[in-house]
């Protein structure tokens, strides 16, 4: 792996974060009627009574790190340095707590279901893609391919709703929502672990449905790879079928998909906003949803920035693994 490639990727991630941060700053400025007007009513309903404009601006500064009094570039500089140097994302209007603190409590839960969803969705798409390619034009292929097309036509949140209906309401296999059963003590006891997994299963599956959108592309790749000489030679060499399927077919079909898989990480993470609300799963997505509902702008911007940061980190880590899976990358780029 060349350091140049890594530096380029790192630079890109940092640039992306800067862009998102700038966008969030500009969005404060672009609020209808300007930030002061837009947030006046929200803040007033919190503090009660009337306040003069200076006091209001100070309060806005306190909550959002943006002081509408100052010239634009000073505002931006202060906002950016708060975010980057102090990891200060402001204070929630409603919960009167640091946005960072609020988000930190929720991150592990969202990560938990997102990582499960990714693992589930991606391994399923790879597996199904390879299997259908292996048996191209068989009944298995046409059945599975049609199922995948069908699944890709259902929004993941509807998958969630359907899962709740059949597995949680009609049958009590899983809880309908929440992240842990009531009255279960936290800790490394089996009861807690089981409850944890049970609550996470349905959200993870419905998010995972989103990640299976690559299965058909994977099938196409695998069909192409099946036509490669090295597959035929591997068969002539009398290698075991499982080895050919995984190390030859699987490995080589993933390569062209890798970027797509990496970019998909951002999509799966952000699907948490809708899925967590459907399952009332108190992760970061639900926090963002609550922020929208209560017009809690600092919290809203904070979750956006953290969502971005997490996605970028995950993509960067995935980028590091790319060299493990494709040796040629060190000469390319």
């Amino acid at each position: 792996m060349t350091p140049k490639y890594l530096l380029k990727r790192l630079g890109q991630a940092i640039l992306t974060f800067f862009v998102t941060m700038t966008v969030s700053f500009l969005l404060y400025q672009a609020m209808p009627g300007g930030p002061t007007e837009a947030m006046r009513s929200v803040i007033l309903s919190q503090s009660g009574g009337s306040v003069d404009i200076d006091r209001l601006n100070r309060m806005i500064q306190l909550y959002t790190n943006v002081n509408p009094d100052q010239p634009m570039h000073v505002q931006y500089f202060n906002y950016a340095s708060d975010v980057i140097l102090r990891q200060d994302l402001g204070t929630s209007f409603f919960k009167n707590e640091e946005v960072t603190t609020l988000i930190m409590q929720r991150i592990p839960w969202s990560m938990f279901i997102s990582v499960y969803a990714l693992a589930l969705g991606y391994s399923l798409s790879i597996f199904l893609g390879v299997m259908t390619a292996y048996r191209e034009k068989s009944r298995f292929d046409s059945t599975v391919s049609s199922l995948i097309i069908g699944l890709n036509s259902i929004p993941y949140y509807i998958v969630g709703v359907v899962l709740i209906y059949f597995l949680a309401i009609q049958n009590n296999y899983f809880p309908t929502g929440g992240r842990i059963g009531s009255g279960i003590a936290a800790g490394y006891n089996p009861e807690f672990m089981l409850s944890l997994v049970q609550h996470a299963a349905l959200p993870a599956i419905s998010m995972g449905a989103l990640a299976t959108s690559g299965a058909l592309a994977m099938r196409g790749n695998a069909i192409r790879v099946l036509g490669e000489d090295y597959i035929r030679v591997a068969q002539l060499r009398g290698l075991r079928e499982t080895r050919i399927a995984t190390q030859y077919l699987g490995h080589n079909s993933i390569l062209p998909m890798y970027t797509q898989f990496m970019i998909g990480i951002a999509g799966v993470f952000s699907s948490a906003v809708i899925v967590e609300e459907v399952f009332a799963y108190p992760g970061m997505g639900l926090l963002m949803f609550e922020a929208v509902k209560t017009q809690d702008y600092p919290l809203l911007m904070g979750t956006l920035l953290v969502f971005t940061a997490i996605s970028l980190t995950a993509i960067f880590i995935a980028d590091l693994t790319y060299t493990l899976i494709d040796p040629r990358i060190s000469v390319g780029e």
Binding site: D229, Y230, V233, L236, Q247, N252, I325, P327, R328
Partner: peptide
Amino acid sequence: MVFQGAMSSFNPV
């Protein structure tokens, strides 16, 4: 068997 696709007879990864 050795055949003409020697260039592509090896698994590239």
